[in-house]
Design a protein around this nucleic acid. Structure first.
Lengths: 234, 234
DNA sequence: AAGCAAAAAAGTGTCGACAATTTAAATTTG
DNA sequence: CAAATTTAAATTGTCGACACTTTTTTGCTT
């Protein structure tokens, strides 16, 4: 199976689960606008399910912080705030480092080889589309996802894949800010794999943290520029 | 308000939220046995709510990994595994360090003073009850909770308070394994506050991580001994 | 008596409806 | 005409009921 995130079987799975997946996707991709209010009857009609079924899905979305509910007032899609994005990157840095450290200890040689292969594919993908490739949008998550699997820490995977990545993906989709430095990122990924292969947990940890920190700082820079532009131009 | 975890207003809040809170508490305290199967009609009756309401709560419990659901087969309370506990400590170490680092940067002087005061109360509590105090059971979480609040990273607080702490508390309740070294722990807490007060983020991070690592190793030792005992005695 | 088959019981998945609350609209009043 | 109050519409909270699966019980066959 392609490393799709939060994949849910379309036929077997309970309706609630499918609705949950669809809603999550719609929110992340901005099809349901960030900050917009959610009407339960309307959404239920749109997806062709009962309100009860939909509400169960909403409960889970709330637990993942993708929507915010206030009693008797209904639910709103989270509104993206810069601060929260930075918070997320901070956590991702700490957990990414841990995951990578554990991966260096626990990944099998086969897994590492596959990881290498994945990066080769990414490189090809970048060369072909020259910037607008799948890699730009989602490919990076593939890499991190595999490393996490190699960490053998299931809860870690759940926290990152089930919560943090979603938020970051949401930003990328809605602000169209794919990684602005694909080759550099790829290089960093390769270095990380090297460290994992050498079973150098300490180094793997450090490199991964630095990798994520770089991404965060890039976001911070862009934000500063946006603010500056706003003050001079608009 | 006392630093109760996941506090839910008993009157105002929607029924679902209250049921969720009650169920979570019951699971953590072992009132609903770990590993036991959950009967929706039975539970609904017990708490005097409809099945729909209860199912919404179950969805959230599943999202928090406190129960596991399989389609058409129902829900089971998680069974406590040693591996998962260790996984949780690993994550807690990474995130605790981050939280402490941020706290050193962001906590106000007032908050730090209050933190100091809390530790004084803890010391008193330990002296009085000499081991069986509130501190042993829950007090440690108070400390970590406050530090997390000081980190100003809300998501971090949610992850730890809304997920990881719960699991650790569950183990403590059910295996009655309160911190076996209250004075040592208190001392470590004091050192951490010192570092925060000096705004030494690096050191605060390091000390917190070491503090949590010590707890983890203690768990690991106890587990090894238990295994050894089992092999020779049982 | 053991094993398989069919029927019954229990349980989960999903839905539609009613009650209570909030928001919007309409009417009254100063 | 604006502000306040009442009325109406829409929305959320909660429940009970029915269909479909899974599990258990029952009964038959070898």
């Amino acid at each position: 199976m392609a490393p799709t995130f939060n994949y849910i079987s379309p036929t077997t799975a309970p309706l609630t689960d499918r609705i949950f997946g669809l809603l999550q996707d719609a929110i992340i991709k901005g099809e349901i606008r960030a900050g917009s209010k959610i009407s339960e009857p309307e959404l239920a009609k749109t997806y062709g399910v009962s309100r009860g079924t939909l509400r169960e899905a909403l409960s889970r979305l709330e637990e993942r912080h993708l929507i915010i509910r206030s009693p008797n007032h209904g639910a709103r899609v989270i509104s993206l705030s810069y601060e929260e994005l930075i918070e997320t990157y901070q956590i991702r840095e700490a957990l990414g480092g841990l995951g990578c450290r554990l991966a260096a200890q626990n990944m099998t040689d086969e897994e590492i080889a596959e990881l290498r292969q994945l990066l080769d594919e990414h490189e090809k993908s970048i060369e072909e589309d020259n910037g607008l490739s799948y890699y730009q949008k989602e490919g990076e998550f593939d890499f991190h996802y595999r490393v996490l699997q190699g960490s053998r820490n299931n809860r870690l995977l759940t926290i990152l894949d089930g919560g943090l990545y979603q938020l970051i993906r949401m930003y990328r989709y809605q602000f169209s800010t794919a990684s602005p430095r694909p080759y550099q990122a790829l290089k960093e990924h390769r270095r990380i794999v090297d460290a994992i292969e050498e079973r150098d947990a300490e180094l793997a940890d450090l490199l991964m943290r630095r990798h994520i920190r770089t991404a965060r700082i890039s976001v911070e820079e862009r934000h500063k520029n946006a603010i500056a532009m706003e003050n001079s131009n608009g």
